[in-house]
Design a protein around this nucleic acid. Structure first.
Length: 402
DNA sequence: AGTCCTTTGAAGTGC
DNA sequence: GCACTTCAAAGGACT
């Protein structure tokens, strides 16, 4: 748990994390990040425009970023990884949150616990596809070092099973008239026993973490149908009686994205998620430790709740078969070694026909330490400092510019 | 219709 | 134990 406030001066890697930021000039950026929005937009737009004008390649921006990210110090990532690995360790659960005493108390979502309906603070995001999302009130009240209401309230209600739209309405309060505004990521996990065969809650609100089992596209469709009139949902279900999938609980950054996406969209008038995510990634790094702690805490609760509700669930359940993926990769590799023209090769990887190497790594010659003259001749193995990964993201630079 | 892109973090896999 | 991979969200772009 890297960014959490140590409170009493313990170090969980959080200090290291911050030091790492400072070492890498992040501090300066943090100051500058305050004047984000306009610059984000300007940078992003100009980069998009420039790239499109120069290269007319849909991957031009990606290449540029990869070029930057290529310089990302592994050390930093290790910090993150190492720190995150502490998260579920004892430190996290006990000492890591000296300022969060409620963590030592019974989980609010345990069958014998509950939370109190005493807050009306809520952020409601109108998703572009029409789904309303109720977000946790990320007020300081909720995430103050000693949330005053939580432990007390939790202890007041006992023996009541968690009914999300009521019990959680305190902690995850609903806005006026916001009946269906339940976020998949904010802890709205009704008990599995309360769900119907396709993840429907008795209230008629489908469980957001449960979606049909047929891939991303249907996830979207299902999401869009979440608040359809019941008979529509019913008809849809009859048509597609597919095995529901329990989705992963959202991590801190995902929760942050969910909350801030609409804001960024509004500020930047951007719609492309990839671009928005870049901005959000930068903003995430610009957050203070305390601000991030809100989301880490929230994510922890999410995981905890998820674990309670679906004790047998494993992230592996949603993995596409490793073999299947490997086959896909191998197939791609085969096609890369398949004789063909450099032109076709560049086209396949969205490279500029004039300026780009046609190798699978998409790096432009100018920033590539070991050029791929042509994929048909085997590329030299990636160096530890620079790994070319065409299908997965390269090491991320925490201070990469858009 | 399906996949990619882009971000971070959690968790799984494989050595 | 480490490095690597997959998946969570989102929606436009691309195949």
């Amino acid at each position: 748990m890297p960014q959490l406030s140590s409170g009493g001066g313990d170090d969980l890697g959080a200090n290291d994390e911050m030091i790492a930021f400072k070492d890498e000039g992040e501090q300066e950026e943090k100051i500058q990040e305050n004047a984000f929005t306009e610059r984000d937009l300007a940078d992003l737009k100009s980069s998009l425009v420039n790239e499109s004008e120069i290269n007319q390649s849909p991957h031009a921006v990606r290449r540029g970023q990869q070029g930057e990210q290529r310089g990302f110090p592994e050390k930093h990532r290790e910090h993150l990884d190492g720190a995150s690995k502490h998260q579920d360790g004892g430190m996290y659960k006990t000492q890591a949150y000296p300022g969060y005493p409620f963590l030592m108390l019974p989980d609010p979502y345990l069958p014998n616990s509950s939370v109190s309906p005493n807050s009306n603070k809520v952020s409601v995001v109108q998703q572009s596809h029409g789904m309303l999302t109720s977000l946790l009130p990320y007020s300081n009240e909720h995430f103050s070092p000693s949330p005053p209401h939580l432990p007390t309230d939790m202890s007041q209600k006992t023996g009541v099973h968690r009914h999300h739209s009521q019990d959680l309405s305190g902690y995850y309060s609903l806005p006026p008239g916001g009946v269906g505004q339940i976020s998949p990521s904010m802890g709205w996990f009704p008990h599995s026993l309360m769900l119907g065969p396709s993840g429907m809650h008795p209230t008629g609100i489908p469980h957001p973490a449960i979606v049909p089992h047929t891939g991303k596209q249907e996830h979207d469709q299902y999401d869009r149908g979440m608040y359809m009139k019941p008979h529509h949902v019913e008809a849809k279900r009859e048509k597609e009686p597919k095995k529901p999938v329990i989705k992963k609980p959202l991590n801190a950054f995902m929760l942050y994205m969910k909350e801030m996406r609409a804001k960024v969209i509004a500020e930047c008038t951007l719609k492309e998620s990839a671009a928005i995510n870049q901005i959000l990634g930068r903003r995430w790094h610009a957050l203070t430790r305390e601000e991030q702690a809100k989301y880490y805490e929230l994510a922890r609760k999410e995981r905890q709740l998820h674990m309670q509700l679906y004790p047998t669930w494993s992230a592996r359940d949603n993995y596409v078969s490793g073999k299947k993926k490997r086959r896909k990769r191998e197939k791609l590799q085969d096609s890369n070694t398949d004789p063909g023209s450099p032109k076709k090769c560049r086209a396949r990887f969205g490279l500029n026909q004039q300026t780009d190497w046609c190798g699978p790594c998409r790096c432009v010659p100018s920033n590539h330490p070991h050029p791929h003259p042509h994929p048909h001749t085997p590329s030299p193995p990636p160096t530890p400092q620079h790994r070319c990964r065409p299908t997965t993201r390269p090491p991320l630079s925490s201070h990469s510019t858009i």
